[in-house]
Structure formats: C-alpha cells, structure tokens
Simulated assay, not measured.
Amino acid sequence: MTRKPSERVERIGDALDHATDLTVRYLADRAGLSTAAAYAMNRLHREGPARLTTLAAREGVSQPSMTQLVQRLERQGLVVRHEDPEDGRVALVAVSAAGTALLNDRRDVRRARLDEFLDTLPPEEGRALWLAAEVALPILARLIERADACDRDGELLD
C-alpha cells in the first residue's frame, strides 16, 4: 500500500509538474528530435560519453530501442561512436559537434520563449521566480545526481 504524500511532497511535485509542462508544451522546440532522442542527447551532453547499454539503462529503455535511437542519431550526425580507451572492444556513444550545436540552439529557443513569457509577469513576480530558481537549482542538481545513482526502482546502482 502506498502512503499518502506529505503536503511538502505534494507542493514540490506540483511545482515540478508545472515546470515540466511549461518546458515541454510551451518552451521546447519539438521539431526535429523526439523526446527520447532529446533526453538521451542531453544526458550524454551532461554526463559525457557512455556505453550504449549504460545509456539504455539510465534512460529506462531496452537496449534494442536505444540501439535504434543511436543509429538514427548517428545517421543525422548528432552522435558518434568511438572506442572506449579502457576496453577497445566497447564503443562509447558521444554527442557530436553538430549534436552539441543543436542542443545549444534548442536551449537558446527555450530561453528566448521563456524570456517572452517572463515579460508578461509583473517585475516583482519575475524577481521572485529568479530567487526561487537560485535556491532550487543546486538542490535539483543534487536530486538528479542521486536519481542517476539509482535504478528505476530506486535501488542504488553499483
């Protein structure tokens, strides 16, 4: 039986849900990349090159699905595979220069759209949101690090 979330968890969850909706529905450039491709590329960009099996596990998809996605991204020139310096039998997947440029362009589009939306707020609300982001960003980064260290069931990975 699942216990009822606390008011604190409900409020934080609502804030994250709203931020996700704003980002995915209104800020993100949805042309050209699937959501799965964007998430995988963002992970590679943030964390660096990874084995395909590791990337599949971290993204919560099957290895065959990730293989197809990586092949599609390779054909588009957005990712590259290169030899793992620790094990020459293994290939690492990395974001290419073109992939990095695309991710940067997509980030710039999100920021420009956000800027337009922020201009519709009263200045004090914009400042309050900025201050909240200053406090929340390092905390969210730590939560992401902890989440990345766990499998999909919340168990710590080796």
Rank of each mutant, 00 (worst) to 15 (best):
K4M: 12
E7V: 09
I12S: 04
G13T: 09
G13W: 08
A15H: 02
L16D: 06
L16C: 12
D17T: 10
D17F: 05
D17G: 09
D21N: 10
R25F: 00
Y26D: 04
Y26M: 04
R30C: 01
A31P: 04
A36F: 13
A37M: 04
A40G: 00
M41W: 02
R43T: 07
H45S: 11
R46P: 00
A50M: 13
R51K: 12
A57Q: 09
R58H: 14
R58Q: 15
R58W: 12
G60C: 05
P64F: 04
S65R: 13
Q68V: 14
Q68H: 14
V70E: 01
Q71A: 07
Q71L: 08
L73M: 08
E74I: 01
E74H: 08
R75T: 08
R75W: 02
G77A: 03
V79A: 05
V80K: 13
E83N: 08
P85E: 08
G88R: 15
R89D: 14
A94E: 12
A94N: 02
V95F: 01
V95Q: 01
V95W: 02
S96N: 02
A98Q: 10
A98V: 07
A98P: 01
G99P: 03
G99Y: 04
T100Y: 02
R106V: 11
V109G: 00
L114Q: 01
L114M: 08
E116K: 04
F117R: 00
F117L: 00
T120C: 04
T120P: 03
T120S: 06
P122G: 10
E124M: 06
E124S: 12
A128P: 07
L129P: 00
W130T: 13
W130K: 11
L131K: 11
A133S: 10
A133P: 00
E134W: 15
L137E: 04
L137M: 06
I139L: 14
L140E: 06
A141S: 11
R142V: 12
A147K: 13
D148L: 12
D148S: 06
D151G: 08
D151P: 05
D153N: 09
E155R: 15
L157Q: 01
D158M: 02
